[in-house]
């Protein structure tokens, strides 16, 4: 049998797909070093001034900070509740289980604009002013189904007999939960947290309807897109955030696959 040529059609296609996926990211990185306010070709020359300007952009950095802490808080809540939901679904039989599953998975399958306006109406009807907290509520709802699925997949991946053995040997339910179940699920829970964080950090379609005077990063970015002169700084930040997200995501994928 002859050796398959190294660059088969499949490989070429795959390279083309990867190029398509990374082209826009590459564009942002290139323009973050380009010495011109205009984001057009041809390039004008190499500069680091946008990176310097980035450090002085206080509003932008404030939005980054807001998004960072909001992401941590919303992901912590979503991860805790989503893990509870996964444990309940996978290890218990209770009345209304099917209904609970359907409702908990539903935020994943309804358009974000619907979720956003529905929460806006709720908060408005209850006279709750819009703030980072209301945005956080939206993020928790968006993230719960994903956490639930990631953790449930892990729970399905090891036999419940491990937990039964623990209880047969005299451990209480809570001891078993904290010493057997949760440690086994820890990589999945961490991966779910990181995935929630990246979602929350980037969420715009729901946040747009729920944010008050304090902006999250995507909301700030959206407001800046109308001002062409500020775009190079935005693009530079994008380059930084994208590289950071890719690193974070790769780490979370690596954790999940290490099993």
């Amino acid at each position: 049998m002859t050796r398959r040529s190294k660059l088969s059609g499949g490989t070429l296609y795959f390279i083309a797909v990867v190029a398509f996926l990374y082209l826009p990211i590459l564009m942002l990185v290139i323009f973050s070093f380009n010495d011109s306010v205009m984001l057009i070709f041809p390039l004008k020359g190499f500069t680091l001034k946008w990176y310097q300007a980035l450090l002085g952009a206080t509003e932008l950095l404030r939005a980054v900070r807001n998004s960072f802490f909001l992401g941590i808080a919303a992901s912590a809540v979503a991860t805790t509740l989503g893990t509870m939901a996964a444990l309940g679904l996978m290890r218990f039989r209770f009345p209304g289980r099917g209904l609970f599953l359907a409702v908990a998975a539903m935020p994943m399958v309804i358009p974000y604009v619907v979720l956003g306006v529905a929460l806006l109406i709720l908060f408005s009807s209850l006279d709750i002013p819009r703030s980072l907290v209301t945005v956080g509520v939206g993020h928790v709802i968006v993230n719960i189904p994903y956490v639930m699925l990631i953790v449930a997949a892990r729970l399905a991946g090891f036999p419940a007999s491990l937990e039964e053995a623990s209880q047969d040997l005299g451990a209480t339910y809570w001891q078993t939960l904290f010493k057997v179940t949760l440690p086994i699920c820890a990589p999945a829970i961490l991966a779910a947290f990181l995935s929630s964080f990246t979602t929350s950090f980037d969420e715009f379609a729901v946040s747009f309807f729920l944010s008050g005077s304090e902006a999250t990063l995507p909301i700030y970015l959206y407001s800046q897109l109308r001002f062409p002169l500020r775009l190079p700084i935005v693009v530079t930040l994008a380059a930084v955030v994208m590289v950071a997200s890719i690193v974070l995501l790769s780490f979370s994928e690596w954790l999940r696959r290490r099993e």
Binding site: I25, L39, I40, L231, E253
Partner: peptide, 26 residues
């Protein structure tokens, strides 16, 4: 992971980048 990674970076900014690619001077 290589295929999945871009999907987890800023959605708005990737769209902005497409604006740069598709615009009349892009």
């Amino acid at each position: 992971t290589l295929i999945l990674a871009p999907a987890w970076t800023s959605f708005l900014l990737r769209i902005l980048s497409w604006k740069m690619i598709l615009s009349s001077e892009g």
